[in-house]
Design a protein around this nucleic acid. Structure first.
Lengths: 200, 200
DNA sequence: GTAATCCTTGCGCAGTCTGCAAAGTTTGCA
DNA sequence: TGCAAACTTTGCAGACTGCGCAAGGATTAC
């Protein structure tokens, strides 16, 4: 962890700008906030703001935690049954998100009212989903299956956040448990042997 | 089907503008296209363009086919096992998409390079997913399970389109079959009874 | 045929985002 | 420590986006 000063400053400023953006968006939504206002609140020039983020929506999203090397490795190595490993993987990612609960909550409200922000996050998630698909592929040797698993997993994270926001009482990890149970139930229904149908 | 003239014209113009937008975007991507250019190519004023679509990204997406009342009803009534009904539902929706293959292909390429367009489509899809969730809820009495099923279903449509675009040989319906098989396989893995784990 | 309703359009304004070049910081190396 | 190379910040100018407004044109219902 011996980052050069430059790098460190950059990360700090990026986070500072994100917080300023979200703070301003709380009032009347992100659309009502100008880039000039964000720059001013962050203590940088407007031009510099655009050196950090391509637009205000990207600033609101910031840099969400990615799947770490350790998490991916644990999943690929695979000690237990796949379901358990996957759940563990999601739990550990959820924990990373919990450390920025305030930001997660604010980002969530921006997403509800801003198409562009949604698209940006969706792009980031798609990349993560691809990474996860690759890792699962190594364990399964079937791309479509791996892709579907990755989809269920990443969607579960989003659904858990949604549930957590709506409820307001339960913890993020508890929300994930509830959502995951639904995923498993749905899987039972989908994999149920059909009455008179042929089954490969 | 006795639409007033106004309504009909409106739909035609909306489609015309969408086609013009996609046509112009083929060259250098949507970002390189100005709203003035789209308006000129569509034979309307720039101001009128904005009466049809909120922005050029929305114009590129247009108005994708929604789940029809008949499709939803068939799913809710539910004659066979759920998996079969769901597959049938997806097949019929895929058929609707096949009738606009040219547009689907162009929209796909816009989505790859434009965050805002992705967000807009994602918003439309989320609404559809919600409709589907409601319908499944009526049959299942469990919201989380219904949501997971709806997620798997709508994601499958997207994945099928992706596969169809990448491959270039297979038909949309065939692509859906391949994707769906992956979904079922993944479900088997997820619902697999775990070794020593407790099972509710 | 006529009144009510809805659509289109030009104009103007506030805001977004980029290229460029000058000025300021940080880094590595001697 | 001190200096050159590499990188950052910033102001400015300029093209593009998106919307409110109000006048004029088309369509509808009766």
């Amino acid at each position: 962890m011996t980052l050069p000063l430059r790098e460190k400053r950059r990360q700090e400023t990026a986070l500072l700008i994100q917080r300023a953006t979200l703070e301003l968006a709380k009032e009347n939504g992100l659309d009502a906030v100008t880039t000039d206002a964000i720059a001013a609140a962050s203590g940088v020039s407007t031009r510099t703001f655009f050196n950090y983020y391509a637009n205000k929506e990207a600033a609101a999203i910031g840099h969400p935690p990615e799947f770490t090397k350790e998490q991916m490795e644990a999943l690929r190595a695979g000690t237990g049954p796949l379901v358990a490993d996957l759940k563990q993987f999601l739990d550990s990612h959820m924990e990373a998100l919990s450390e920025r609960e305030d930001i997660v909550r604010l980002v969530g409200s921006v997403l509800r009212s801003n198409d562009k922000a949604r698209g940006i996050l969706e792009g980031l998630l798609a990349a993560e989903r691809l990474v996860l698909t690759e890792a699962l592929c190594a364990r399964l040797n079937n791309r479509q299956t791996a892709a579907s698993l990755a989809n269920n997993a990443t969607s579960a994270i989003g659904a858990a956040i949604f549930l957590w926001q709506k409820d307001g009482e339960i913890a993020l990890s508890a929300a994930l448990d509830i959502v995951w149970e639904g995923v498993i139930d749905a899987s039972r229904l989908l994999s149920f042997k059909q009455d008179g149908e042929a089954q490969s």
